[in-house]
Nucleic acid binder design. Structure first.
Lengths: 158, 158
DNA sequence: GTCATTTAGTTCCGCGTGGAACTTATTCTC
DNA sequence: GAGAATAAGTTCCACGCGGAACTAAATGAC
């Protein structure tokens, strides 16, 4: 009856919000990451902290749990859980540091690399679908802007 | 002893990751949102879904819970919980729709507007601190790029 | 060398989250 | 108009998350 149902759209909403940059950043980030990690969890049974661990170790040969925590910004208990599960699945290896009995030397195994490759391509494909409307030039611009922000943000945090 | 401790930095890590746009977007978004909502929760006792509800209602006079769910992309049970708490705190009002007995007509109250104003300024200040290194021009560029992405993304989703 | 302090990693616990099933109301079909 | 299908909102439950307290190891002070 009352067909004057003007249900507002997310796009319209994003234009009204007081902190537009934040809203847009959050929206785009979620549009990539949420479906990507949902798929990764469904298909590979790997949760986010676990993948971030694999991701870190695929780029640095040896890291401690603390390093991973710093690199990813996740709390160390999350990393600790991830380490245990990835150890159990054989995706990483762990050895006590000889020089410091507190630290662990973590490294990725071949099966971990395989898993990383699969997950990476999943995330990449979601990224490409979401950012498809940007030209190569625009993507470079986006990266350089975000880069500028992160360099300053990290510097200020220290 | 082994002072060759080259603990890698998040900034360096961001340059190596295979999906750089996603990593940067996620990093910047988190840098704004996480501390902002942590502060909001600590100071005002309002959690994220609750604030998103207030935010929606501060921009549209009447919405149903379903509308809020669509606008924010959050599942309807999260919105439902938020509605109950905001009702209890007097930040929103609810009335059954006359035309459709299933829907609720939600609206924000003066106290809800006050709360929204406080939270908004908190989020805004975190946004400004994080994006401080961008010029006005660069911010416009960033917005337009993200805008382009969201318009296309929403269109494709429909 | 001994004791206090700091640090890496783990365990514990409470909470926000979201999928799924459920209830109630509306709409569609015949 | 009766029954099926859809839709709005709620409740239930399992899970990932992160702060806080804890253990073990190393470092600093004296």
């Amino acid at each position: 009856m009352a067909m004057t149902e003007e249900t507002p759209t997310p796009t319209d909403f994003l234009k009204r919000v007081e902190f537009r940059e934040t809203a847009l950043l959050s929206f785009v980030t979620s549009a990539i990451i949420e479906p990507a990690y949902e798929q990764v969890q469904r298909e590979f049974g790997i949760i986010r902290a676990e993948y971030m661990l694999l991701l870190c170790l695929s780029h640095y040969p040896i890291l401690s749990a603390r390093d991973v925590s710093i690199l990813t910004g996740r709390p160390k208990n999350s990393i600790s859980r991830a380490v245990h599960r990835m150890l159990a699945l054989g995706h990483i290896a762990r050895a006590r540091s000889a020089s410091d009995g507190r630290q662990d030397h973590l490294s990725i195994t071949p099966s971990g690399r395989e898993m990383h490759a699969k997950i990476m391509s999943t995330v990449l494909s979601h990224q490409e679908v979401t950012l498809i409307s940007l030209t190569a030039d625009e993507r470079r611009t986006l990266i350089s802007l975000l880069d500028k922000v992160t360099c300053q943000a990290v510097g200020a945090g220290t």
